[in-house]
Write a protein that binds this DNA or RNA. Sequence first.
DNA 1: CCAAAAAGCTAAAGGCATTAGCCGAAGGTG
DNA 2: CACCTTCGGCTAATGCCTTTAGCTTTTTGG
Lengths: 196, 196
Amino acid sequence: MARAALSADVVVDLALQVVDELGPAALTLSAVADRAGVAAPSLYKHVRNLAELRGLVSTRITDEIADRVGEAVLGRSADDAVRALMTAWRRYAQRHPHRYSALVQTSGPRTSEAGARLLGILSATLRAYGMDDSAVVHAARCLRAAVHGFAVLEAENAFGLPEQPDESYDLLIRMMAAGLSALRPGPPPATGGGDG
Amino acid sequence: MARAALSADVVVDLALQVVDELGPAALTLSAVADRAGVAAPSLYKHVRNLAELRGLVSTRITDEIADRVGEAVLGRSADDAVRALMTAWRRYAQRHPHRYSALVQTSGPRTSEAGARLLGILSATLRAYGMDDSAVVHAARCLRAAVHGFAVLEAENAFGLPEQPDESYDLLIRMMAAGLSALRPGPPPATGGGDG
DNA sequence: CCAAAAAGCTAAAGGCATTAGCCGAAGGTG
DNA sequence: CACCTTCGGCTAATGCCTTTAGCTTTTTGG
């Protein structure tokens, strides 16, 4: 091996720094090369091109989210787990808004691997509601859509009004938890109230 | 006035063509200029720069969504209106996936005007549930997050599994409608699931 | 000590955004 | 009708970024 300064992983590390500090639009090979103390073309020894770097960044982010969310659900189940999951996911987006905006779903081969891990955590959490496999898929999509939508909007500063986003999110959590409970096979609640 | 060939509106029209056909990443002043049959620098007579063009495109898209959603809600109320609203919103994203991906929330002055119109429709729809103003804001955020999240994911082809997205979305609609009904002032549920 | 591979460098091409300054056409005015 | 102002287009030029090609240096394993 030659000078062990850089590696694909380190390049992704630096790319994340750039994203965090300057936003996804500033993620450029030049910017990363500067931080690496290296000329831009040298990066091609570690990464195929900018598109691939973006993909690696997305994969890394997805992995990080899966880590946090997976940890959050440990030892919890049903509504409790859903609340923990949603809270952890949003917290990640809040702490790294640029990073979250850089997240792109366009599934490359490796990105979908990280995505599958995250999806697995979602599905495992939802199985506690006693759904069949197909219902789990649909419910997981809904949960993911709600969380992702909220996180994206918040990361993009789309909530202009003075109302606390925390309160809005708490409402979303309750809506999702209630909706999932309603899917549980068994006696449905009579009223349209809390658990309905 | 000189040759009335181009105008800011026409430039946005052409930009939308580019986005529809080639995706948001291909929205470039050169590409738009080509379609206009004009040299790239000429566009600066109609648009301040690429960033502004992107903003105008977003504004136009937001306006279109507000049109469709507003029309869909006409004469409906409560759950019925929510279903129509969510369906119309998603249909727009399905019919113009690239366009939807090009939508960016970063509120410029005019974009927020179109956004305010859309928000107004949402709020008016939710007021049928008898919420107070603050509750409407929180509920509107949740609804927006859920719809937007689903639409983004679907537009980015993030649903890989064979299960029908239509079914998933129907579930999301039911979850949101149920959740909103549960907010209606009235006899609170006995369990801790409700307002906790 | 030597050779091969890894990792860096410079040079160069090509695309795009943006600025500056020029020119011709349209329209109104006297 | 002649004029002149303004509008909208053009060319030239700059600078940034990606990407390819080919050279050089360093490291490492035998």
